[in-house]
C-alpha cells in the first residue's frame, strides 16, 4: 500500500504539493488527474524517491523511498519524457537495469520485446516518441516492479499500443498485485482503466474516490413531460446537481440511488424517461461543480 500523509513539497516558497493525503491500496490502479502545474509530476517524483519531501511522508508499505534502495528496487517510474543514455539500445537498457533491479527478468524482457514492434539493437534516440515510451515500458515491466509510477504514459501511443499497454498493466496487477499510479491530464484515458482516481489542483487534492462509488452515486436522467413541472418542486424530492430544459425535455444529473430517484420522478408523471450513463468527465464536472469549483478552470 502507498500511504501519502500530509505530503508537502516546495520549490523555493512555491508549494507544489501542499499537505496532501490519501492511500493507494495494493494491487490497484490509481489515476491522478489535474491540469498542468497541478502537482502530478512532483507527486510522482517524490514517490519515486527523486525528490525529498519537505514535510509529511510517502510510504510504501511503511517505508519512505528517498535514499532507500530497497524500496526503489521494488518500484519503477517512467517520467513524461523518458531519458535514455546516448547511443543506447534496448539491449543496453537490459544490461543497465538488470545490474541494479533485484527482480529483473530476462524472460519478461524477451516476451515484451516480442510483443512490441521494436528493434532490440536499434538506437533509442532514433525512435519516435511513442516507440521510446514502449521501450521504457518494456524495461520497466522487466524489472517486475511492485509499484509502477507512470507520468502521461499514453502520450504519443497509437490506439493499438495503448490498449496493449493497458492490457499488460492490468495483467500484471491481476497476476502480481502490482500497484499502479498513473498521472494524466486526460480523464478519458483513465476512465476505463483506473480503480480509483484523485483530482489534483494547485498542489492539493480536490477529490479522491474509487470510480465505482463515483459512478454509482450519480446519474443522468432524461424525461419528457406533457406539462413541465416546477424545478423547485422536483428539487425538493430529488437531489439535482444540474439540469437542462429544452421544450418538454428535461435532462438532469442527480445524486442518489437510481431506484429512489426514478420512483420520485414518476410522481411528476413523465410521458417518457430514461437513465443515461455518465462519462467520468461528466461525473467529475458534476462533483466539482457541486463542490463549488468551476471544472473548466481545473481540468484542461
Amino acid at each position: 500500500m502507498i500511504d501519502i500523509q500530509t505530503l508537502t513539497k516546495k520549490f523555493g516558497s512555491f508549494p507544489a504539493l501542499d499537505g496532501i493525503s490519501f492511500q493507494i491500496p495494493t494491487g490497484s490502479i490509481f489515476g491522478l488527474v489535474g491540469s498542468n502545474g497541478a502537482g502530478k509530476s512532483t507527486l510522482l517524483r517524490t514517490l519515486a524517491g527523486i525528490y525529498r519531501p519537505d514535510a509529511g511522508a510517502a510510504l510504501f508499505d511503511g517505508k519512505a523511498p528517498f535514499e532507500n534502495t530497497e524500496v526503489k528496487g521494488e518500484l519503477f517510474f517512467i517520467s513524461d519524457y523518458p531519458y535514455f543514455p546516448p547511443q543506447s539500445t534496448l539491449e543496453d537498457l537490459r544490461q543497465m537495469f538488470q545490474r541494479f533491479y533485484p527482480n529483473w527478468s530476462d524472460e519478461t524482457f524477451d516476451r515484451l520485446c516480442a510483443m512490441f514492434p521494436l528493434e532490440r539493437k536499434g538506437k533509442l534516440k532514433d525512435m519516435s516518441k511513442g516507440m521510446q515510451r514502449q521501450a521504457a515500458v518494456i524495461a520497466a515491466l522487466s524489472t517486475r516492479p511492485s509499484y509502477f509510477l507512470l507520468d502521461e504514459i499514453f502520450d504519443g501511443l497509437d490506439p493499438v499500443v495503448r490498449q496493449l499497454l493497458k492490457k499488460l498493466i492490468a495483467g500484471e496487477v491481476a497476476d502480481r498485485s502490482m500497484t499502479v499510479l498513473i498521472a494524466s491530464h486526460n480523464l478519458r484515458e483513465l476512465e476505463d482503466f483506473c480503480d480509483s482516481i484523485a483530482l489534483l489542483h494547485k498542489g492539493g487534492v480536490l477529490l479522491e474516490k474509487d470510480l465505482d462509488s463515483l459512478r454509482l452515486g450519480i446519474l443522468r436522467v432524461q424525461a419528457v413531460f406533457r406539462e413541465m413541472p416546477e424545478i423547485s418542486a422536483l428539487k425538493e424530492k430529488i437531489s439535482i446537481v444540474n439540469f437542462e430544459r429544452t421544450g418538454s425535455v428535461l435532462s438532469f444529473v442527480a445524486r442518489g440511488n437510481e431506484e429512489e430517484i426514478l420512483a420520485e420522478l414518476k410522481a411528476f408523471e413523465p410521458q417518457f424517461y430514461e437513465v443515461i450513463p455518465l462519462s467520468l468527465e461528466e461525473v467529475f464536472i458534476s462533483e466539482m461543480e457541486a463542490a463549488g469549483y468551476d471544472i473548466n478552470n481545473i481540468v484542461s
Binding site: K72, P82, P102
Partner: peptide, 16 residues
C-alpha cells in the same frame, strides 16, 4: 543538470 536524466538515475535503486 538535466531533469530527464536525473529522473532516470535518481529513481534507480542506487544510493547517492
Amino acid at each position: 543538470h538535466r531533469k530527464q536524466q536525473i529522473d532516470l538515475f535518481h529513481a534507480m535503486p542506487i544510493s547517492r
